[in-house]
Amino acid sequence: MSEHIRVSVADGVCTVAMHRPEKKNALTRDMYDGLATAIERSAADPEIRCLLLTGTEEVFCAGNDIADFRAPRPLDDPDTPTPSRRFYFGLANFEKPIVAAVPGLAIGIGCTMLLHADIVYAAPEARFRLPFVDLGLVPELGASMLVPWLVGRHRAAELLLLGDFFDAAAAERMGFVNRILDRAELLPNATATAKALARKPQEALRITKRLLRPEMPPLLARMEEERELIAERLAAPETQAIMANMLKPKR
């Protein structure tokens, strides 16, 4: 398990916290592996009835770590899913309830993973962004399907094409989050909600969650398409130049 992914289990709830505050919880390959492992274990363990995702005290997740994203690594075994793929599809296929507590920044993957949560609470200070186009990339985790499904096509175009920040109040209005809570109350309330879900009749809960979600085969197909396009875009000169510029030392 990654040192930057902290996992605890109590009262039927698996709490998974991204903990790399010095980098605003930006995800590395190792962190994806830790997240994927926690999700897989939670899915398989009948004693775990709800998943709670959170970050550190002031940040949820600022997206992918760009340096780690670009770092050369050995070729992946084509028969073994990468850590990010395990996380993406483990999250999308997770049948138990998912609660998220967002204390601060939620950018890129930090925002798109919330689309797969069932109940999301955010602090007033939370800020959200879908910056894929500005990075020379395309959306991920099914966001190109889920964001229009959530907010409508025109607003989705605004969020995904312009890629501007939006605050917690806007996120609540659009349905990205259920409630805004003071930061001190955020995790206790999210934990209480997760425990309440863990006490519910589990089969009825799973069926109801399935009925609430979009049709899964088209969503999973779109996620695969996005991943293939991201791989192409990462090799594109446009994207390489953007990321190289981001990694230049700041004067």
Rank of each mutant, 00 (worst) to 15 (best):
P97V: 01
L187G: 09
T193N: 07
R173W: 00
N178P: 00
V133N: 03
L91I: 14
A198Y: 10
E172Q: 15
G136K: 08
A170L: 10
A117D: 06
A122R: 10
I119E: 14
L130Y: 14
L115I: 08
A190R: 03
L159I: 13
L135W: 10
A123I: 11
A168V: 01
D164K: 01
R129A: 14
D167T: 01
M113F: 03
Y121S: 04
E185N: 13
T112R: 13
G152H: 07
G136N: 09
E140P: 02
A194T: 05
G104Q: 07
G163L: 06
L187K: 06
I107V: 15
L205Q: 14
A92Y: 09
M174P: 00
L141C: 10
T193R: 14
A101G: 06
A184T: 10
E172R: 15
P97F: 04
A196V: 00
A157Q: 13
D134M: 09
L114K: 08
A92H: 08
H154S: 12
A101N: 02
K96F: 05
Y88H: 11
G142P: 10
A156E: 06
E185P: 02
P103Y: 08
V147T: 12
P97D: 01
G175Q: 08
E95Y: 00
P139W: 01
D118N: 15
L186S: 07
A100I: 03
Y88T: 12
C111T: 14
R183V: 15
L141D: 07
R153C: 00
E125F: 00
F165V: 01
W149C: 00
P148E: 04
A157S: 11
L159K: 06
G175E: 09
L181I: 15
K195C: 06
P148M: 02
P131Q: 05
R153H: 07
L146C: 03
D182C: 01
N189C: 13
V177C: 14
V151Q: 03
E125I: 01
M145V: 11
R199I: 00
A126D: 04
D164C: 00
D182T: 11
R183W: 01
I180R: 04
P124K: 03
H116C: 07
C111M: 10
K200S: 09
A171V: 12
P103E: 09
V138R: 01
F176I: 13
L150C: 05
G152P: 05
A204N: 09
E185M: 13
V147C: 02
V151E: 04
R173N: 11
H154W: 07
E140T: 12
L160M: 15
F128V: 03
G110W: 10
G108L: 03
Q202P: 02
I98P: 04
A92I: 13
A169N: 01
K96L: 08
L135E: 09
L141H: 11
V147L: 05
P188R: 05
A100K: 10
V147I: 15
V151W: 03
E185H: 11
V147M: 04
L162C: 06
A92N: 08
A196M: 08
M113T: 09
K200A: 13
L181D: 04
V147W: 03
L137D: 11
R127A: 13
A204T: 05
A171C: 12
A169Q: 06
P103Q: 07
R155T: 11
V151T: 07
G104A: 07
F89M: 04
A92F: 06
L160D: 00
